[in-house]
């Protein structure tokens, strides 16, 4: 990897330190979505922001961009299928689309609220990968223009 790619050394060092914390914060927002403000959508966007920060600071070539775009699209579809899968599972197990079929648990505990945490995780994968693939598609436009 050449050092000329991406931004300056200062930006790269700061990004290296901070990007993991942003990612962990996004995961926290998702997993506590049924207890505190936040949830799948906000957490997914924060995770996409971590990826975009890394991408902007370090840069990448046309080939790896294409590969990342394919991976992000795949993750987005997987998140959508997971979300609908949870809904259809409710239909199969108890006869209602989107039924909260899991046990409710004790309120204010991490493992509570039935399917709501699972739905949050599915939505976060979908939203995060979707926004990142929009960003990648816009960034890959540069190479299309150059051809």
């Amino acid at each position: 990897m050449s050092t000329r790619q991406g931004m300056s050394l200062i930006v790269k060092t700061v990004t290296n330190i901070i990007v993991g914390f942003i990612f962990i914060y996004g995961v926290y927002i998702i997993l506590h979505g049924h207890l505190t403000p936040g949830g799948g959508f906000a957490g997914g966007v924060i995770i996409a922001g971590a990826f975009i920060l890394r991408f902007l600071a370090f840069g990448s070539g046309a080939k790896s961009e294409k590969k990342s775009l394919n991976t992000a699209s795949m993750f987005e579809s997987a998140g959508g299928i997971l979300f609908i899968g949870i809904a259809i599972l409710g239909l199969l197990l108890a006869g209602t689309f989107f039924l909260n079929f899991l046990p409710k648990g004790t309120p204010f505990y991490l493992l509570s609220a039935g399917i709501i945490p699972l739905c949050n995780i599915a939505i976060s994968i979908k939203v995060g990968a979707g926004l990142f693939s929009i960003f990648l598609a816009l960034a890959a436009m540069k190479y299309v223009m150059e051809d």
Binding site: G33, H34, L35, T36, P37, G38, G39, G40, N100, K104, G105, T106, P107, F108, S112, A113, G114, I115, I116, C119, N120
Partner: peptide, 12 residues
């Protein structure tokens, strides 16, 4: 629903 965050209860 058992969820403490009322917004999550409504939207999910």
């Amino acid at each position: 629903t058992g969820g403490a965050n009322i917004v999550a209860d409504v939207i999910l």
